[in-house]
Design a protein around this nucleic acid. Structure first.
Length: 582
RNA sequence: GGGCCGGUAGCUCAGUUAGGGAGAGCGUCCGGCUUUUAACCGGACGGUCGGGGGUUCGAAUCCCUCCCGGCCCGCCA
């Protein structure tokens, strides 16, 4: 394939095959990769780590990096900052925190590759509130007219931020704040404008021959004419692809603003012929990524599996043989799916951090990112209760309450980072209501009811202080949102008004009897028992009688265990409702 | 077609570092909570550890091979 072609045509003695040796594999967390490397046999810490971030931290420290250690992530702006994008931030975050815990100074940065051109109009966008909207909500024409321009040169479709790029970066930053992750957002456009890339561009354009040789095995487009620099057209503002000459002395390039192919569509160039300085353009991705490593002094960078076999090997090669520096410690992470399918903003299969935080606590979401990066994981919104249950168990394991040595070992190390308190780990386990139980409580709005039922069911200790109780009950709102969002079996509401009902005489009489029983003052357990007896007394099928109760209180045919539920409600309300009076 | 990474119970996943008991939670079923109704408790059912071969006294774990899935092998990022 292309590798063979490359070998044939590269009549160059000192650069033959791609220079990515086996030990440059980015899969540093895979089973086989920790095996004894025969080469640099520097007793690579054979310590076992229960938390993957420690394994990565070992790799970083083994290089004896200067401080602050720099950890990077980055994305190109798109319409929606979805959960998958957060791998770039969260995976790096845990490594950063582990290194800080080891006494290192760490700087976590996140680059927005916002000098890239907008290549097609996104079908969905997230507004400043994180809500996903279609193009109908924005000035789509303004986007269409600006195809081919850098994201930073395109107006914010919502008319609020400085640019499209600023809007998108703002979304990411806001979500990072919500997860309490301190990350420094960097704009590629600004890095160019400030001259940070000057040396890299000089290196590249100063020896284009060399760059071509390095790049040749990786890209078919690289030929004797290829110039790895994309000036921004002075006339129309688009990122151009046709450089006709380089003046290394003046540090300028000549270009023609030609048409650009963008995934099948053509973005028309204006035909302008001009001259651009080294700052008035950008390096293409395969050079820009390794250039960032050098400019920012990156020591570690996680990236998705799509980069593992494509731009990583070429990036390693470019870093060493163009820029003369070592690439950072890499780490490939698997992609998440959402409800079984790939994230896709165009098809609406996306979820944002902000949306998720309406359903689960931040620590639960952080926990999700603390799980092993090499496993493809599905985030199933319908089964969010499973994720929360797993987190609760993980938390109990940290407090020594779970008989599972592996889980406990993982929890002992990872839990303090997951809750964001490595220096000051909690000494007391928070009160956690089981998520589905919280969903049951969410059927009633009254906070006192929620607390009473939670206490009666033994989920809140008698001596719990008020703050701890409030914290525990906060989950009810989230579980309630989950029930509503999924429309699952917990999505019922206690009816404040009498539903339209009609019962036959026997049922009506039984309800009246039950009302009298409740009015006399009995607890939930007794009411539950009375329901059976009353039904039998009136020759009513038990199931029919329960159905009548669910109709009255939930306007449905099913519901939670009714007796105990009614026992916690206001007595007058229950009595009136059973009598069909209010 | 080639490369990389994955494949453990119906579902979500531990376990592979260092070979020795196949596990957890949820779901399902049964039972308990005096008395069918989602929450609580107990128990049971449930797996050829993707298939096959090899090494070994012993393999989910190591080796080979095949199957399946994702990604990459144009451009872009």
């Amino acid at each position: 394939m292309s590798a063979d072609d490359a070998a044939d045509e590269t009549a160059d003695p000192d650069v033959d095959a791609p220079n990515a040796a086996p030990d440059d594999s980015p899969h540093i967390l895979s089973a086989g990769s920790a095996a004894d490397g025969e080469d640099a046999a520097d007793e690579t810490t054979e310590t076992f780590h229960a938390f993957w971030a420690d394994v990565v931290a070992d790799e970083v420290e083994a290089r004896d990096p200067d401080e602050p250690i720099v950890i990077k992530g980055g994305v190109s702006p798109s319409g929606v900052a979805h959960l998958g994008n957060f791998n770039e931030i969260m995976r790096g975050y845990f490594v950063a925190e582990v290194l800080r815990d080891r006494g290192r100074e760490v700087r976590q940065v996140f680059t927005s590759d916002d000098k890239d051109p907008l290549r097609k109009v996104p079908r969905k966008l997230a507004n400043a509130d994180g809500e996903i909207v279609g193009l109908g909500e924005v000035d789509a024409g303004a986007l269409g007219r600006n195809l081919g321009k850098p994201y930073t040169a395109i107006p914010d479709p919502f008319g609020e931020a400085e640019s499209y790029a600023a809007h998108f970066a703002g979304l990411l930053k806001a979500d990072a704040d919500r997860l309490d992750v301190p990350v420094e957002m960097l704009s590629n456009t600004e890095l160019y404008a400030d001259g940070d890339f000057d040396d890299a561009v000089r290196t590249v354009l100063g020896d284009v021959e060399r760059v071509r040789e390095v790049l040749f095995p990786y890209q078919d487009k690289v030929d004797d004419e290829y110039v790895p620099f994309n000036p921004v057209c002075a006339e129309c503002g688009k990122v151009t692809e046709t450089v006709t000459g380089i003046d290394p002395e003046a540090e300028t390039v000549d270009y023609v603003c030609t048409d650009m192919d963008a995934g099948g569509n053509t973005i028309e160039g204006c035909g302008h012929e001009g001259t651009a300085t080294f700052r008035e353009g950008k390096l293409p991705w395969r050079l820009e990524w390794p250039a960032q490593w050098g400019v920012l002094g990156v020591d570690f960078e996680p990236f998705g599996k799509d980069h593992a076999e494509g731009s990583w090997p070429s990036g390693v090669d470019v870093a060493r043989n163009v820029f003369g520096e070592e690439p950072p410690v890499p780490m490939v992470y698997e992609w998440f799916t959402l409800n079984g399918d790939a994230f896709s903003s165009s098809e609406g299969n996306v979820v944002t951090v902000q949306e998720l935080l309406e359903l689960i606590e931040p620590e639960v979401l952080r926990y999700f990112f603390a799980l092993h990066p090499k496993k493809a994981r599905d985030l199933d919104i319908e089964r969010l209760d499973q994720l929360v249950d797993r987190f609760d168990r993980f938390e109990r394991a940290y407090f020594g309450e779970v008989d599972d040595p592996d889980l406990t070992a993982f929890a002992e190390r990872a839990y303090p980072f997951v809750v964001g308190r490595p220096d000051d780990p909690p000494t007391e386990r928070p009160i956690r209501l089981p998520y589905t139980f919280a969903a049951v409580l969410g059927m009633v709005d009254d906070p006192d009811f929620r607390e009473r039922l939670a206490r009666d069911e033994g989920h809140i200790p008698d001596d719990a202080d008020a703050d701890a109780v409030d914290a525990a009950l906060a989950r009810v709102e989230q579980a309630r949102n989950w029930a509503e969002r999924t429309g699952n079996e917990y999505d019922y509401r206690l009816q404040t008004d009498l539903p339209a009902v009609e019962f036959d005489e026997d049922v009506a009489a039984a309800l009246d009897d039950l009302a009298a029983f409740v009015a006399a003052g009995h607890d939930g357990e007794e009411i539950q028992g009375a329901m059976y007896e009353t039904a039998r007394d009136h020759d009513v099928e038990v199931s029919d009688f329960f159905a009548a109760g669910y109709r009255l209180f939930f306007d449905d045919t099913q519901g939670p265990r009714l007796g105990e539920f009614l026992g916690e409600l206001e007595r007058d309300y229950v009595v009136d409702r059973l009598r069909r009076e209010a």
